[in-house]
Computed example of a mutant assay.
Amino acid sequence: MINDKLKGGIYVALGASSYGMLTTFVKMAYSEGFNTAEVTLSQYVLGAFGLLLLNQFGRKKHSPLVKSTTYTAIKLVLAGTSLGLTSVFLYLAMQYVSVSVGIVLLMQSVWMGVIVEMIIHKKLPGARKLLAVIIILGGTVLATALGQQSIRVSWAGIGWGLSAALAYTATMYSSNSVGLQFPPLKRSLLMISGGLIMIIVIFHAHINLDFSFRIFLRWGILLSLFGTILPPILLTRGMPLIDMGLGAIIVSLEIPVSVLMAFFLINERVSGLQWTGVFMILLAVVLMNIGKREPVPK
């Protein structure tokens, strides 16, 4: 059991770290002249293709899959549209803000999720969750440099980042409630397909003579691997081996990984106050989830 729990934690940590690398790769693609349409389309087209191949191989290797219904499959595709919106909004924010600020804005989905939970269950959150929300908001003010006059704040970037957090909240809710009887790889494929459809709807006008298909080989493989293929595989393998509280804490590794990747690869500087804000948000995630005891499947 100890070995399984350790293995699950490693899988979840690697999945979160994969997501954490994504925003830095997007920044690097932007620096080479690629735009949001090219970045998102290459990621989702190659990601959907990769997951399709994995589903085909998995179907041959594993036991017969649970019979799916067209209605549930359509619901998963529709749920995936919010995943596509998350990427679009986050990558638009990356045009205006740093990687560290972008990932902090995306993590506002933590307190947005608390509000969604309160609305659905019609019950006020406990004192510990309320305290965590306050810590997150305070940490966000520091991490986004809102209180530092020497740093220029992009309100457009903050707006797109908060929109990404809202879309991500919808994605997290739907991924935890829709089509749970489907195999993880099939669920991932259907949701990524929904995201791809949404991205094509948004950026169809950009697929013209000016569209640089070089993005598929230059950055598309990396973006799809770390953004749409590896994370669902690693997280769906790791999460069943550990309890949800510990899983949520480990997933928050995405924040420091993003900041460190940006520091080492694109020399993005983060002030001491911003680091304080980042650690406050991590503390809030731990506060919300520590002490949760959910049975781990044996």
Rank of each mutant, 00 (worst) to 15 (best):
F182G: 05
A205N: 13
R187Q: 06
L253E: 11
V178F: 03
R214I: 05
L246I: 01
K186N: 12
S212G: 03
M198L: 13
P240F: 00
L189A: 06
N208A: 11
S177H: 15
G227L: 08
P240Y: 00
I229V: 14
G157L: 02
I255M: 14
S224H: 04
H204S: 06
L225V: 13
V251T: 12
A205D: 12
S175Y: 08
I233E: 15
L225Q: 08
W155Q: 01
G194K: 07
P240N: 05
Q181F: 07
A170I: 05
L223Q: 09
G157N: 10
S193V: 04
I158A: 09
L166S: 15
D243G: 02
V201W: 09
I197G: 05
A167T: 04
R237L: 11
I200V: 14
S188C: 02
I192S: 13
H204K: 09
T171E: 14
T169R: 03
A205G: 08
P232V: 01
S177T: 14
V251Q: 14
F213Y: 15
W160I: 00
L217Y: 10
S188E: 01
F216P: 01
G159R: 00
I200A: 14
I192H: 15
L222V: 14
S188Q: 02
D210K: 11
L189N: 10
L234R: 08
Y173K: 06
L162H: 07
L189H: 12
K186M: 09
I151G: 07
L230P: 04
I199L: 09
G179F: 09
F226V: 08
I233N: 15
S150R: 03
I255G: 10
V153S: 09
S224M: 02
H206D: 14
A167I: 03
G220M: 08
I207V: 13
W155D: 02
